[in-house]
Simulated assay, not measured.
Amino acid sequence: MVKLIIDGQNVEVPENTTILEAARSMDINIPSLCYLKGINNIGACRVCIVEVDGVDNMVSSCNNPVKEGMVIHTNSPRVREARKTNTELILSQHDCKCAVCSRSGNCTLQTIANDLGILSIPYPMKVPPYKWSPRSPLIRDASKCIKCMRCVQVCDKIQTLNIWDVEGTGARTTVDISFNRKIMDSDCSFCGQCVIHCPVGALSGRDDTPRMFEALANPEKV
């Protein structure tokens, strides 16, 4: 067992426990976007950062294990400011029309932004254009993708279909269908796992409600 202090509270957890899991075991909330236990712990979003005494730089809590005697601060002024900046940068590359998003009210990014008191974005908005087949029962909106890689890891490690992959470099990095394919030409089973685990509204099921009402109003079909 490893003994440490988190936000002034003594805690004892098993070896190899991450800082994030240790904090959650004490009901201390550390926000995260990309983390999925046992599946995705790449620390890409940098929202789960914490401050550790004796360490100059802040560390991501999702992929750093606890160490004996650690003193961790999850909500210090320095942590809050850095967490807010990182979230603002994510929002600057995200379509923020929340009122008309299918995940409005159930969006992890929206919740984190609200909790941090973000009311404006002090960076230029750079939302990438992207075309997607309307025939697909799975809809992807690239303008909402935050590149958390959850869909990639869930599809690879749970479904083992390897449908999604990272494309581009630097600021042009995005997630797309692997091997430069179209969704309808891939081996996607449309299981919905990527939709369920997407923390924002980048992935969703196709809405056929208008077609249903049209069919119901057609006396030749009902």
Score class of each variant (00 low, 15 high):
residue 66 V to I: 14
residue 86 N to D: 09
residue 68 E to Y: 09
residue 89 L to S: 02
residue 82 A to G: 13
residue 112 I to D: 00
residue 107 C to H: 08
residue 59 V to A: 09
residue 61 S to K: 06
residue 81 E to Q: 12
residue 60 S to D: 08
residue 71 V to H: 09
residue 111 T to F: 09
residue 101 C to W: 00
residue 67 K to C: 09
residue 58 M to G: 08
residue 91 L to H: 09
residue 96 C to Q: 13
residue 106 N to D: 12
residue 78 R to V: 14
residue 65 P to S: 07
residue 57 N to Q: 15
residue 82 A to N: 12
residue 73 H to S: 13
residue 89 L to A: 04
residue 65 P to E: 07
residue 65 P to Y: 00
residue 80 R to V: 05
residue 102 S to N: 03
residue 108 T to F: 00
residue 56 D to G: 11
residue 61 S to Y: 12
residue 93 Q to Y: 12
residue 65 P to R: 11
residue 67 K to D: 10
residue 79 V to Y: 04
residue 88 E to I: 01
residue 109 L to I: 07
residue 100 V to I: 12
residue 88 E to F: 00
residue 70 M to K: 05
residue 107 C to L: 08
residue 83 R to D: 04
residue 67 K to H: 13
residue 87 T to L: 10
residue 64 N to F: 15
residue 95 D to S: 10
residue 73 H to D: 12
residue 108 T to S: 10
residue 59 V to T: 15
residue 64 N to S: 15
residue 89 L to P: 04
residue 86 N to F: 09
residue 85 T to G: 06
residue 100 V to M: 01
residue 101 C to E: 01
residue 109 L to N: 08
residue 63 N to G: 03
residue 92 S to V: 09
residue 89 L to K: 05
residue 111 T to Q: 13
residue 88 E to T: 00
residue 95 D to N: 14
residue 101 C to R: 00
residue 68 E to V: 03
residue 69 G to P: 05
residue 92 S to I: 06
residue 72 I to K: 02
residue 76 S to L: 14
residue 97 K to F: 08
residue 105 G to S: 03
residue 56 D to P: 11
residue 109 L to Y: 08
residue 95 D to F: 10
residue 93 Q to I: 09
residue 77 P to G: 05
residue 98 C to L: 06
residue 79 V to K: 07
residue 101 C to F: 03
residue 97 K to P: 05
residue 107 C to P: 02
residue 60 S to F: 06
residue 99 A to P: 03
residue 58 M to A: 07
residue 62 C to D: 05
residue 86 N to A: 11
residue 77 P to N: 01
residue 78 R to F: 14
residue 108 T to C: 07
residue 110 Q to H: 02
residue 65 P to Q: 12
residue 76 S to A: 04
residue 91 L to Q: 01
residue 100 V to G: 06
